[in-house]
């Protein structure tokens, strides 16, 4: 027994006793059977790690039925948890109501010529309220045209002789699985713009955004050499709180990813009295993973009010 370092070896009786005890034991006799056993083992290559891991995994599960049972139970639990229904409110459509004076032929003509009136069911009811004749229109705006409903309302309000324009949002309680509810929060939009003209691409983006419940977006296509750049400007409050979308546009060999984030600060006047630098720092703290550039944090000052928009458009891969 040799010790090379200066640490002193214990020479007390206790260690001698332990040494003596172990010296009495001799396992040399079993060496031949161990050698025979070891020589009979087919050594597996250590270089093929993935295959070895799969084999090990297979062996692990096949070794015992109870392991398979545990694995199946765990899988069933995960599937059940993902399919567990959660309740969420969803827009089913909108109802637009207005009244028209039937004695005003110009107003009647303009209302009847509204192009969108043919896109949904319309109910016209003639009423007499305190001796005043009027026609009450009820138009159900389909869910897919939810984004256009504000435009319809403004169009009606511009017609002289049209009154009591009211908009009622129809919402329904929907039960959907957890995974579906999560996906619903952040819309995934994938567009293949290869062979699409600028106008077609613009229209496709607008349609996709509208079907995702985002209205009032202005889409601009800028051409830079062979590459096209998509610029989307959103109307205020057009993106659902705590929601957003993740858009991927494939255009030939180019890939553009646009991510729109929106987060309700929850504290009115949170940014009031702050400098641009302080606001940017606060926003970066809210979106720590997004590595936001200064130009992606848009600060709009209106008197004492400060509005902040975060637009992230990145990752152009050629």
């Amino acid at each position: 027994m040799k010790h090379t370092d200066s640490y002193k070896k214990q020479e007390g009786n206790e260690m001698n006793d332990v040494s003596r005890m172990l010296n009495k034991v001799n396992y040399e006799d079993s060496f031949d059977s161990a050698a025979g056993w070891l020589n009979g083992i087919k050594v597996e290559s250590q270089t093929n790690y993935p295959e070895r891991r799969i084999k090990k995994m297979k062996e692990f599960f096949l070794a015992s039925k109870i392991r398979i049972a545990y694995a199946v139970l765990a899988l069933a639990f995960v599937v059940a948890a993902c399919n567990y229904p959660v309740t969420s409110n969803e827009t089913a459509g909108d109802v637009l109501t207005w009244t028209v004076d039937p004695t005003n032929p110009e107003a009647m003509k303009q209302v009847k010529s509204l192009s969108w009136l043919s896109k949904g069911p319309v109910k016209v009811e003639a009423r007499n309220i305190n001796g005043v004749e009027e026609q009450l229109y009820s138009f159900v705006v389909p869910k897919e045209n939810h984004g256009k409903v504000s435009a319809y309302k403004s169009e009606l309000e511009r017609i002289a002789g049209v009154g009591s324009v009211k908009l009622l949002e129809l919402s329904q309680t929907v039960k959907r699985p957890v995974y579906s509810a999560l996906l619903h929060e952040l819309f995934q939009i994938n567009i293949n713009a290869t062979n699409m003209s600028d106008d077609e691409l613009k229209s496709e983006i607008t349609t996709q955004l509208q079907s995702a419940g985002i209205s009032g977006a202005t889409v601009k296509i800028e051409v830079n050499g062979n590459a096209r750049r998509v610029n989307i400007e959103f109307a205020e409050n057009s993106i659902p709180p705590n929601g957003g979308f993740d858009m991927t546009i494939t255009d030939g060999n180019n890939l553009e990813k646009i991510k729109q984030l929106r987060k309700d600060s929850g504290t009115p006047g949170k940014f009031n009295g702050k400098t641009d630098e302080e606001i940017r720092r606060m926003v970066r703290e809210d979106f720590p993973d997004d590595d936001l550039r200064d130009d992606e944090i848009q600060i709009i000052r209106e008197g004492n009010d400060v509005k902040v928009k975060v637009v992230k458009e990145r990752e152009v891969v050629e």
Binding site: K24, N26, S30, W37, S64
Partner: peptide, 27 residues
């Protein structure tokens, strides 16, 4: 939590520790 027959996956393992010397480890 594993069934008792779990260890049977290596039936060919030889007994290397000599059981006749076990009394030494009981002192």
């Amino acid at each position: 939590f594993l069934p008792s027959d779990d260890e049977k996956q290596f039936p060919e393992f030889p007994e290397l520790i000599d059981r006749s010397q076990e009394n030494i480890f009981k002192n």
